[in-house]
Design a protein around this nucleic acid. Structure first.
Length: 901
RNA sequence: GCCCGCUUGGCUCAGCGGUAGAGCACUCGCUUCACACGCGAGGGGUCAGUAGUUCGAAUCUACUAGCGGGCACCA
């Protein structure tokens, strides 16, 4: 007797299989030796080198792995390409913090030494998430792993930069940008966090140069007034029409500034007059360009006032300067009032520092052409296809339509240094290497641009740079474009859209056919999980407690809608894993004789496939299995993760465990060996084996663990593309479901048996019959049903714990609990001396009432002439059949009630 | 301000034009020879509201309310 524990312990399976899979090369597409195999590719959204696994990752990884394993088993040349990104700012901050502990700054080390330190840090602490990816069971091809700072990736970045620059799509310019005074770098619009904050609205009075009087402007940032170069009013604003063109004296600095008219101004807001600081506000910057205003920078990159702010202010921190400006205005009697005011302010996404809009020399990428190409692709070819399409397609296209140029330079040391060099006389040379630049410039006296590129610039090239681009490699030819991108919705702009644009630009094709946007796992209160709130659930803890497979099932069923995290849910899938374990345990404990019967997978599956005289329950489960397989494949095709989990759960637990195992038990557990027993056992294992294959993409560890133990010819079960490989369920053929084995008649007949058994059990329960007590069950059925019941009489007897007699003409005893079934069958449980007539009458009456309600509803519908004439004929006849059945059952109930009175 | 999503049994969620579903929780009964992380039997919902479209609406349309999210140059 084989020794199998009663409870599944995931730890053991999780510890052993991954390494074996990886070592044998099962994760690489090369394992597939069919040259004509269709190709399936997913590139991982490269996690951050500083990061560790969170629920969002686990969710995405589960879905990617499910799809990859599914396609791989189906014989596709499947590649899931892993990688990691260098996360410029975050990583630089990590190392800077480390240096600080040693009392050093990065400037003490210098750029070169600092970058060396980052690499050391990366080797030691970076990429924790990669081991976590292994733990999840992710079947990624480690041989193709890429890091965005690898030389091959860097080369792609330089190449893309040079090409875009050559076409005028990358330029350098002095523009207003989002500056983080803490991180000392510029940020793109997407890295800006807009947060509402309580502040004040200050009303400042600016006197006219001539004729007395003043204009009052409202501002949330009084300190910027030091850099004001105009005041704007709306051209249609009657209050100010006469003063347009007049000159104001800017208090504190005594600069003469004009009043200009601009229809950007909202007359209703504040006083209807706006101070204009072109150097410190994006809107004012634009206005300044329109009116040709001077740009006076009064705040520096550290957030301190510059010399241009005047002697009283120079060197002051911006908020101190604000207080001083207000104080001075008040002293001058020019502060009209101060209101409390809440508005949205821009903060650094990472360090939450309030950003300072500054005019600064940066590199930008023009977006108009790239954007137009992406939009055209969406409109003409509907690529990429978003799932769910609503709302993401619109979110994506709306964003593209309003896209502005992308600030791609960053004032960091960790990242891809911009491939631009300057000659001593200020000429700019953009080249793939220093040597190339020197050649172009005709001198070796060049200085490379100090800045690095936005991390997302390299990420934008990910779907093809990882495959070898800019070289035309085999991988690029084979695996681009990828099949689907799976990601969270907050990354649609940052990454998805940019990949589409660069993919179209450099490859002429969209980088992925589909984009599946996952839902978000929220905490139990419906809040987003976040580090700062401390409400996150660590997937690794969940793995430890419930097992990886159960966690994967939970996450897969999240699908594309936001879901609150519920440990109860994981627990239920842990229980499901245990159920699978025990079902397999039962099969294995009753497998004796199976091996001798020959290779189940071949010999017996032929027996199974033959439309021979298999018992009803065998034909039924075969039908259910094939139907399930077809549905599972169809649902996976549509990314219906939630649905597919339900389908599998229901099939395995309800159909296979609750019914099939129970129905086949008498044969399977028969004392003596016989052909019948061998066949029953083999069929049981065949169903189990195929179920495990269906479940494998979701529950890789458990299914492999069990599959390896089955007494089957494993090699024969491999997909032909993997023939000859050391057997693993991950290379076994994914059941597609054979439509010819779907047997509706068997399903209908089996349903009648199931209903019958359920009714008798119901009687047992309601009549308080002890589980151990044997009862009599008398069945009277019409001929068709009678044959069905007669063929299954042993099973009915076993599952109702009764002596069963079937006789179409039987006289039902009076002292019996009775029930009516659909299709013209009655069942009676004689309870001589035990039955409480009043109670039984009440039970039957309740049932009759239910039937009557249903009948009324149906009759009302059938009584509607419009329904009968307009609804499809099948619908009408279906209802009629139901009414008839109900009438029959009701009249049978009447007879029973009469017999009891 | 504009756009979008959600609102289904106590809880978490499916279903998205033809008899209201699951898991958990709940009630009752079970050491039935795979499994108490289990087995069997139950109770529980006018599918947020209103008005439409339709023979028929949880499912389509419009509006309303509550919740959540995205975008935006109101200083």
């Amino acid at each position: 007797m084989i020794d199998i524990p009663k409870t599944y312990d995931p730890k053991e399976a999780e510890a052993s299989h991954y390494e074996r899979w990886e070592k044998r090369g099962y994760f690489t597409p090369e394992i597939n030796h069919d040259p004509n195999a269709p190709v399936y590719t997913i590139v991982i959204p490269p996690p951050n080198v500083t990061g560790s696994l969170h629920m969002g990752h686990a969710l995405q990884h589960t879905m990617m792995d499910v799809l990859t394993r599914w396609k791989r088993m189906a014989g596709w040349r499947a590649l899931w390409l892993p990688g990691m990104d260098h996360a410029g700012i975050s990583t630089q901050l990590m190392v800077t913090r480390q240096l600080k502990k040693e009392g050093l700054t990065r400037h003490d080390l210098g750029r070169e030494k600092f970058v060396e330190r980052v690499w050391v840090w990366k080797e030691e602490y970076g990429g924790q998430i990669l081991n976590q990816l292994r733990r999840e069971g992710a079947s990624v091809d480690w041989s193709r792993f890429r890091f965005t700072m690898d030389e091959s990736m860097s080369r792609a970045v330089r190449d893309a930069f040079v090409r875009l620059y050559g076409e005028g799509m990358i330029y350098r310019g002095n523009r207003i940008v989002n500056w983080c005074p803490n991180d000392q770098t510029v940020l793109s619009d997407l890295e800006v966090l807009r947060e509402p904050q309580k502040g004040r609205l200050y009303y400042l009075r600016y006197p006219f140069k001539h004729g007395g009087g003043s204009i009052t402007v409202a501002t949330t940032r009084p300190e910027t007034m030091l850099g004001d170069t105009a005041v704007m009013v709306h051209p249609d604003d009657e209050r100010y029409r006469r003063v347009v063109g007049k000159t104001l004296i800017l208090p504190l600095v005594n600069r003469e500034i004009p009043v200009v008219a601009d229809d950007f101004v909202e007359s209703e807001f504040g006083t209807g007059a706006v101070k204009v600081t072109p150097a410190h506000d994006p809107n004012d910057y634009e206005a300044g360009l329109r009116h040709n205003l001077e740009q006076i920078s009064v705040i520096d990159k550290f957030g301190r006032m510059t010399e241009a702010a005047g002697a009283d202010f120079v060197g002051l921190e911006r908020y101190k300067a604000r207080d001083l400006v207000v104080e001075k205005f008040e002293a001058l009697g020019l502060l009209e009032k101060v209101d409390d005011y809440e508005n949205a302010i821009s903060k650094c996404e990472r360090c939450k520092t309030v950003l300072e809009p500054l005019i600064s020399m940066q590199w930008f990428c023009r977006m108009d052409q790239l954007r137009d190409a992406a939009l055209a692709k969406l409109r003409t070819d509907h690529k990429p296809k978003f799932v769910p399409e609503v709302p993401y397609e619109k979110v994506y296209s709306d964003w593209l339509e309003n896209l502005r140029d992308w600030t791609i330079s960053r004032q960091l040391w960790w990242g891809h240094q911009i491939p631009a060099w300057y000659t001593n006389d200020g000429q700019v040379i953009v080249a793939r290497s220093r040597a190339e630049a020197e050649k172009k410039a005709g001198t070796n006296e060049l200085t490379q641009d100090e800045d690095v590129l936005d991390t997302w610039f390299s990420s934008a090239l990910w779907p093809f740079s990882t495959l070898g681009w800019p070289d035309e490699t085999d991988d690029l030819e084979t695996f681009y474009p990828s099949s689907v991108l799976i990601t969270a919705r907050d990354i649609i702009f940052l990454w998805v859209s940019r990949m589409v644009m660069t993919g179209l630009k450099f490859r002429g094709r969209e980088p992925f056919a589909d984009v599946y946007v996952t839902g978000t796992v929220l905490d139990k209160h419906g809040q987003r999980m976040s580090k700062t709130k401390g409400n996150g659930v660590d997937p690794l803890d969940v793995f430890d407690k419930y097992g990886v497979d159960a966690t994967r099932l939970t996450l897969a069923s999240v699908g594309s809608t936001d879901t609150r995290w519920s440990e109860k849910q994981v627990e239920s899938y842990r229980n499901f894993a245990n159920k699978i374990w025990n079902a397999a345990r039962f099969c294995l404990l009753n497998a004796e004789g199976v091996s001798e019967a020959g290779a189940i997978a071949t010999g017996l599956s032929n027996a199974f496939d033959d439309k021979n005289n298999l018992p009803l329950h065998d034909r039924w489960i075969r039908s259910r299995l094939n139907k399930t397989a077809r549905e599972v494949n169809a649902q996976l095709e549509q990314y219906e993760f939630h649905g597919v989990v339900q389908t599998l759960y229901h099939f395995f637990w309800d159909d296979f465990c609750d019914w099939y195992i129970e129905l086949s038990k008498s044969m399977v557990t028969a004392e003596a060996d016989s052909d019948e027993r061998r066949i029953a056992r083999a069929l049981l294992i065949t169903i189990l084996e195929q179920s495990l294959r269906l479940l494998h993409p979701f529950m890789p560890y458990l299914t492999e663990e069990l599959w390896q133990r089955l007494p089957v010819n494993h090699s024969d079960l491999l997909h032909p593309s993997y023939a000859g490989a050391e057997p693993s369920i991950m290379l076994a053929a994914y059941p597609q479901g054979d439509a010819s084995l779907i047997d509706e008649a068997a399903e209908t007949e089996m349903q009648a048996v199931i209903d019958l058994i359920s009714r008798v059990r119901n009687i047992r329960s309601e009549m308080n019959i002890k589980p151990g007590d044997r009862i009599q069950v008398m069945i009277a059925a019409k001929s068709a049903l009678q044959t069905v019941f007669a063929a299954s009489v042993d099973q009915i007897a076993r599952l109702t714990r009764a002596e069963v007699s079937i006789d179409g003409n039987a006289q039902m005893p009076k002292a019996a609990a009775r029930a009516v079934l659909s299709g013209g069958a009655e069942v009676a449980v004689p309870l001589e001396g035990l039955i409480d007539f009043a109670q039984e009458r009440a039970r039957l009456a309740r049932e009759k009432e239910k039937l009557q309600k249903e009948a009324e509803k149906l009759q009302a519908q059938l009584g509607n002439a419009d329904f009968v004439s307009r609804a499809p004929v099948e619908k009408v006849s279906e209802l009629r059949a139901r009414v008839e059945d109900i009438a029959q059952r009701a009249s049978a109930l009447d007879d029973m009630l009469e017999a009891l009175s």
